[in-house]
Amino acid sequence: MKTPKIIFTFLLICCFFTGFATIESLNGKWQGLLKTDHGDEYPLLYNFKIDGDQLTGTAKTPKGDVPINDGKITGNTFTFNVMVNNMEIDHTGKFYGDSVGVDISLGDAKSHATLIKAVTP
């Protein structure tokens, strides 16, 4: 009777560490393309850094790199914002392992983009 409990506990611990290792893979540079309803396209480049349940790093803008603010991680989802031209741009994302889906909102305007791991030379 003790063996099934030990196996079950071991499997739970493995699942916990697998989930933890997965979100840690979000560390690094991610790129994508934001397409607006008006047909405009903007390249996206983020450099994410994970520290426990905190997300920090930078986002590349036409005016240079800006810091990621108020970054929080819950499971495989995360939220943060960046300030560009005194405007707060909110981000909500989900990490899928090989890609990231991110919803970007500025006031009433909302867009979605898919990010992939950036290839570094």
Rank of each mutant, 00 (worst) to 15 (best):
K2D: 06
E41C: 02
F20R: 11
V102D: 10
T79I: 14
G39E: 01
L33G: 06
C14P: 00
K63L: 12
I89H: 01
G93H: 03
K2W: 00
G28Y: 03
E41A: 05
V100G: 06
M1H: 11
F8T: 03
L12M: 15
F10R: 00
L34W: 07
N47I: 12
D98F: 01
S105P: 03
T74M: 13
P62V: 06
V66E: 15
L45E: 12
G57E: 14
H91L: 07
K63G: 13
T3S: 04
D70E: 10
N76C: 09
F48Q: 01
D70A: 11
C15R: 01
G39M: 00
I13Y: 02
L44D: 13
W30S: 09
G28R: 00
P67D: 14
K110P: 05
T120N: 10
M83G: 07
V82Y: 02
K117V: 15
N81G: 13
L33R: 13
N27C: 04
G64Q: 06
D65T: 05
E24V: 06
A113H: 08
A21L: 13
N81W: 05
K72N: 07
M87P: 00
G57T: 12
P43G: 05
M1R: 08
E41I: 02
I116P: 01
F16H: 10
K49R: 07
I68Y: 14
H91Q: 10
I7R: 02
A21W: 12
K5L: 11
T9Q: 00
L26C: 04
K2A: 04
N76M: 13
G19E: 13
T92Y: 08
N69E: 15
G64R: 01
T120I: 15
D40M: 03
T120V: 15
L44G: 09
N86D: 15
T36E: 10
N69Q: 14
G52S: 11
L26A: 13
K2T: 03
I7H: 00
S25P: 00
N81A: 13
K110C: 06
G64K: 01
P4R: 07
D98C: 04
M87F: 10
M83L: 11
L11N: 01
T56C: 10
N27Y: 00
I23V: 15
N47S: 15
H38C: 08
G19V: 02
L44S: 09
V100C: 06
N76P: 00
